[in-house]
């Protein structure tokens, strides 16, 4: 299992039966593969429906049934379609209980940067700003450091923000961090990873509880 799958497997355990969830692209999309079979979650797709299902069998694609990335998907039985105003009212209005998104950086104020790198990449924010502000629980799934080993969990984000003070949990291949009113609590570390290693690879200040669980 690679890092991305490890992160997705742990993130899936946050999901509760009966929740309405929106999963972003990248690692969050993989989360769907790890949801416990006794946990029934409904996935919202911001292009206008509830009940996002897996990709169709070849030849069974419907041109008007796609995910927010434009790729063919299926709708589960009991799904429902709506317009964009309804879709984003669901998101902003707190009806989507959990969103999972990737990030370039997060910081100890709970702020996140995931939509642009000035001078390099300016794709637009899409629905990310609305999801981060509206979902009750925001879970960020990302690799702990950059390709060069630099921390991505910072004291303060350096890239333009997507939203301020919104993050609840960060799940990386090394650990689970809970963003609380007291600060960032290191709740779990992956097997074979030490608390010291996580501290060394994190710029933000971490609160280390007496017991740090093993991340499953």
């Amino acid at each position: 299992m690679d890092n991305k799958e490890k992160i997705a497997r742990r993130a899936a355990r946050f999901l509760k039966d009966g929740e309405l969830v929106n999963l972003g692209i990248g690692i969050p999309t993989l989360v769907g593969n790890f949801v416990d079979e006794n946990t029934e979650v409904l996935l919202q797709s911001e292009n206008g429906f509830i009940g996002l299902g897996p990709a169709p069998e070849p030849g069974k694609e419907e041109k008007d049934v796609v995910n927010a990335g434009g790729h063919p998907v299926t709708m589960v039985t009991g799904g429902s379609c709506f317009d964009s105003n309804m879709s984003f009212a669901l998101i902003r209005g707190g009806h989507v209980s959990t969103t999972m998104l990737g990030a370039f950086e997060v910081d100890q104020e709970g702020s996140i940067a995931n939509w642009m790198i000035p001078g390099k990449k300016v794709p637009g924010m899409g629905g990310a700003m609305d999801l981060l502000v509206g979902a009750k629980t925001v879970i960020i799934t990302m690799e702990h450091t950059t390709k060069n080993g630099e921390p991505r969990i910072l004291k303060k984000c350096t890239l333009p923000l997507t939203a301020k003070n919104v993050v609840d949990y960060v799940v990386t291949e090394l650990c689970v961090i809970h963003f609380t009113d007291e600060g960032l609590v290191l709740e779990e570390v992956a097997e074979g990873v030490t608390v010291e290693e996580v501290i060394a690879k994190t710029e933000a200040e971490l609160i280390i509880p007496e017991e740090v669980k093993v991340m499953m």
Partner: peptide, 11 residues
């Protein structure tokens, strides 16, 4: 409208 093709049409 059909399925996801509704999106911004009504507004």
């Amino acid at each position: 409208y059909n399925r996801c093709a509704r999106n911004y049409n009504p507004a």
